[in-house]
Design a protein around this nucleic acid. Structure first.
Lengths: 379, 379
DNA sequence: GCGATTAAATTGCATTCCAAAACAAAACGG
DNA sequence: CCGTTTTGTTTTGGAATGCAATTTAATCGC
């Protein structure tokens, strides 16, 4: 057994396969991943010793000759992480296990939007959750932080964004880790939410898909080979850019604007409830948004040709359901489709946006992609 | 020294770095690739022994202290490949060296478009080129075959396309290799042309870029981490799908249609010459195509956020130059660009489309990405 | 019931590839 | 001329895997 936290490349491929399949025997894994049984035995032994996966004790009786397969699965509490999501007007936090189960969660209203205040409040909330859950703090692999907004230049190090004016230029490792006392990673809200789908939701078994995140803005992510493709300045898959801000667009902010103009007293997305959904102004917005999003799906299908397009966000769930129902219905996306257009699916893990943030450390530790230090060493 | 043809993962990273930089010392490579000097010495020794790279004999006098760096570069004749491009009405073939130099090339008119005829003619042409060049046939690492058209389902194995009705369903390895007597790979024409830019052209030093290929149709490719991203059914980056066939579109076929309607006697793209370029109908088509392609650039910038967008094709070179000049000029792609839009560049290697095909075996052997069999073995 | 058969999982050994560190070589500069 | 500096080489050891032989536990057929 090794002492390092990070599993090796093929060990992560095994974790990834188990996530996609649910359960699998060592022999299954060897076949699927083109590894030798001996390698699988060794790596899974490692992973079991570390508590990341577990062997089911029930013997399976398939009626088949030969040694009965012993099924492996992810150990739910094998990798616990913390997540912090900063809304414009609230802080959402949670602790999550490796199967995407939210152990505890909390919502905090922030006094002001200064960097210090928000991070101090968020860290205090995580501390409360740790105490409340009785979890050993050392078992937390890391804390993910996500919030809406575009990155500025020099991605990774700096993240000044418009929503939080007055914030200093931030180096994730240097400025955030001290608050939380564990490794911290950061991503834009939509791309973090996409990770929640990749690791715990609708995209568990997909390698290439696109995610559309409808919140105050229109965000998104494209996953290529189980890895978010970021592009220059992390601007890839920022679908919102396809809808000019000078014109009506399918964003939550646009919806709130229409509601306000119609005299409906709603200023936050979280204040929209079932009673609003049948208002004429709401129907009008929805119909228009669906048309625009159908066009977006066409564009995504033609550019990324993903295995699926997944819709999620902080809009009212019924609204998102309706949008997906319409888009996945009969109306064709466009002309000249010689192959079926990608299926359009509803996100499963957007009820708690902080879960996306909590998926970030999972991605760092378990992502089945090759990391820089491994490319260097050649594994 | 190893006997296998394929260099190891880090050896391919070295080849890739040399392609991007032109020349580099071992110490440069160690710094850039985060490898130890010892590893670089060993791997480059291997590559030199195999003739893939060479050491410049001139000592470089930089006026700097210390052991003078000995520069390495790709050996031009280190990896020779064959390329076959099937146009609707001709066969283009070539032999190319590893720096993208075309050693010899040929154009053949085909009797008919049957699979047998075309492949027999193509193979005969390659044989002639080998004889003509005096190259040892065993030095050819492989033959790439490309032609326009969409793939059918089951990518990789099957490739029935519309342009060549009546072709059987084809398994690349089983059905093509016998004709050429060496490893054969296949890709759609636009995606192969993109490889020519990646390995020999404008994108030598880029990791992520998009390619737009203007020929009879509108093809393209998206490269992610120096690897073409194909998507479901190899339909990714098929930009043509964004322009419905029922309406005017910026394709060569559309241009020929307009010319015919205007009474200009031109039926093939290769027949368009400088005298046609100033015709009013030509100006009309160009102006409209540029508008449409500007919109395409906006879509690409918003979806892939590539480091660059590269335009190439079999349209008249002057026409392509004009399109790129216009698109990279002052007119903005769209609203709300908080970062500079990606630069729009002219392809360097589209004069001979068969060079794209010839780049396919190069990609197979030298691509600095991890191959399946390496993930399996873990190196 | 019991050996034959079959498939899964394990173990020891060889191989491949790379890192670390010590070492050697060539130029510059006082 | 000799120390300094930078480049490149050699040696040793470690990490991860594949291969082949072996062990284990179930079913099948007599």
């Amino acid at each position: 057994m090794k002492t390092s936290i990070a599993p090796s490349f093929n060990a992560r491929r095994i974790l990834s396969a188990l996530r996609g399949r649910g359960v699998a025997s060592r022999a299954d894994l060897a076949r699927d991943l083109q590894l030798t049984p001996s390698t699988v035995t060794r790596l899974t032994g490692d992973l079991i010793a570390r508590g990341l996966i577990a062997e089911r004790d029930e013997p399976i009786r398939t009626g088949q000759k030969g040694y009965p397969a012993r099924l492996l699965e992810l150990a739910p509490m094998g990798l616990c992480t913390a997540g912090v999501y900063l809304d414009p007007d609230r802080i959402l936090t949670c602790l999550a296990d490796s199967s995407g189960g939210v152990i505890v969660s909390e919502e905090v209203r922030a006094e002001d939007r200064s960097f210090e205040t928000l991070m101090t409040e968020a860290a205090a909330s995580i501390d409360r959750l740790v105490a409340q859950s009785g979890l050993d703090r050392a078992r937390l692999a890391g804390c993910g932080v996500s919030y809406p907004g575009q990155y500025s230049e020099d991605p990774g190090r700096v993240m000044r964004i418009r929503q939080f004016d007055g914030w200093p230029e931030i180096d994730v490792q240097r400025d955030l880790s001290p608050f939380f006392g564990m490794p911290v990673s950061h991503m834009n809200d939509a791309k973090a939410a996409c990770l929640a789908e990749l690791y715990h939701g609708r995209a568990r078994d997909l390698g290439n898909f696109c995610h559309v995140w409808l919140s105050y803005g229109i965000g998104g992510a494209a996953v290529v080979d189980q890895k978010p493709y970021l592009g220059r300045n992390n601007q890839a898959a920022e679908w919102g850019g396809l809808f000019p801000k000078s014109r009506p667009r399918p964003s939550g902010q646009d919806l709130l604007g229409m509601l306000e103009a119609a005299g409906v007293a709603v200023t936050r997305l979280s204040d929209i409830d079932a009673s609003h959904l049948q208002l004429p102004v709401m129907r009008e917005w929805t119909a228009r948004a669906i048309d625009q999003l159908r066009w977006l799906c066409l564009v995504i299908a033609r550019t990324y040709a993903p295995e699926a397009i997944i819709f999620g966000g902080t809009l009212h769930p019924d609204l998102l359901d309706e949008i997906v129902d319409e888009l996945s219905g009969e109306a064709p996306l466009g002309e000249d489709f010689h192959f079926a257009a990608p299926p359009i699916l509803r996100a499963e893990q957007d009820r708690m946006p902080q879960l996306g943030a909590a998926a970030l450390p999972v991605h760092d530790v378990m992502g089945a992609r090759m990391r820089a230090d491994e490319a260097r060493r050649g594994w």
